[in-house]
């Protein structure tokens, strides 16, 4: 600890005399501090302030009040919104993590065996990932087109199956939205899992081999425990990303039918920018922040202790 702290200072003493002061970092950080302060910190503080007012986007100064909080949190639709958000997030995160991990495992194996097609698969998945959210929504809307010529229904018909009401059946639509989100997001998890797999010390596998471990045992007792930190970090990242997803849903379903796919971010958007209710939107924004932070902390508590340091 102390040796570590001293070393940089010594290296400075070794340098020419007039440069032996440690330079202040703040002039260098100033642009970032200014931008982040103006565009993140100040607005977030203001969100907390607005939440205690009755401000609207229609003008006026508003008054300080606690009733917005009470009003928003007791809205009858809020429970439904939170449930929809939960299903969407859980479905997307689990799907992306599982498929991403499976793809990474298969790709690593296939590369070892010099199988054909790993690069094509990886690149295709990554192309889906680069597609902007709005375009992704539009593309999937074409696929989910419920007319007989729709991109999925005409496939189903070709295979002799009944068409599915992908976007108009309130019981199906959520899974359609999750499917489209898994399509767009999985590549990220795949890449993270792939990099983590590559970073596992090969001697662990050699040792398992010597002990006569089967492939399944190697997966459960070597690979998965070694991947644990990477899986948790990845889950934090994709959970937050999914909670904030907004453009892919607004262009695919717009939140409908009814409120079947209206997630919290879309609801917040509608409250502020369609109903002009700035104060209520601020309360919802705080709710979003609290949920993100809470989930991140829950995941982080599963990280091995030495990883936190």
């Amino acid at each position: 600890m102390s040796a570590r702290a001293v070393r940089p200072k010594l290296s400075f003493l070794g340098v020419a005399g007039r440069h032996n002061r440690v330079p202040s970092p703040y002039p260098w950080l100033m642009p970032v501090i200014l931008v982040m302060g103006l565009f993140y910190l100040y607005p977030v503080v203001d969100v907390f302030r607005y939440a205690f007012t009755d401000l609207t986007l229609l003008g006026g100064e508003g008054h300080y009040t606690l009733s917005t909080f009470a009003n928003v949190l007791t809205r009858p639709e809020l429970l439904q919104i939170v449930w929809v958000t939960f299903v969407f997030t859980a479905g997307s995160v689990v799907g992306q993590q599982l498929i991403g991990l499976a793809m990474a495992l298969v790709v690593v194996r296939a590369e070892k065996r010099h199988l054909f097609g790993t690069t094509i698969l990886r690149t295709t998945a990554l192309i889906a990932w680069v597609v902007p959210g709005i375009a992704g929504g539009i593309i999937w809307k074409m696929l989910f087109n419920e007319a007989p010529f729709g991109g999925l229904n005409s496939l189903l018909r070709l295979m002799g199956m009944a068409p599915v009401q992908w976007l108009s059946d309130p019981d199906v639509v959520m899974w359609s939205v999750v499917l489209s989100n898994v399509w767009r997001g999985t590549a990220f998890s795949m890449v993270v899992m792939y990099a983590a797999l590559k970073a596992i010390d090969p001697s662990l596998y050699e040792a398992a081999e010597v002990d006569g471990a089967s492939a399944r045992q190697k997966l459960f007792f070597v690979t998965l425990p070694q991947l644990r930190p990477a899986i948790l970090v990845n889950m934090i990242l994709i959970t937050i990303q999914t909670l904030n997803t907004f453009d892919a849903i607004i262009s695919l379903t717009g939140g409908g039918p009814g409120r079947a796919t209206e997630v919290l971010s879309l609801y917040t958007f509608n409250v502020v920018f369609r109903n002009y209710d700035l104060a209520a939107g601020s309360v919802l924004s705080i709710l979003m922040l609290v949920i993100s932070l809470g989930l991140a902390l829950v995941y982080a508590s599963f990280l091995p202790k030495d990883e936190k340091a």
């Binding site: 950080l29 970032v32 982040m36 565009f39 993140y40 100040y42 607005p43 977030v44 203001d46 969100v47 607005y50 986007l57 937050i240 909670l243 904030n244 907004f246 971010s265 917040t268 958007f269 502020v272 920018f273 700035l278 939107g281 601020s282 924004s285 979003m288 922040l289 993100s292 932070l293 991140a296």
Partner: peptide, 22 residues
Amino acid sequence: WMLGILAFQMISPLVIMVPLYR
């Protein structure tokens, strides 16, 4: 400082757009 900068990324752009729009 570094973690703080990264933590901002957790915040949904929607949250900051509420006051920024105003």
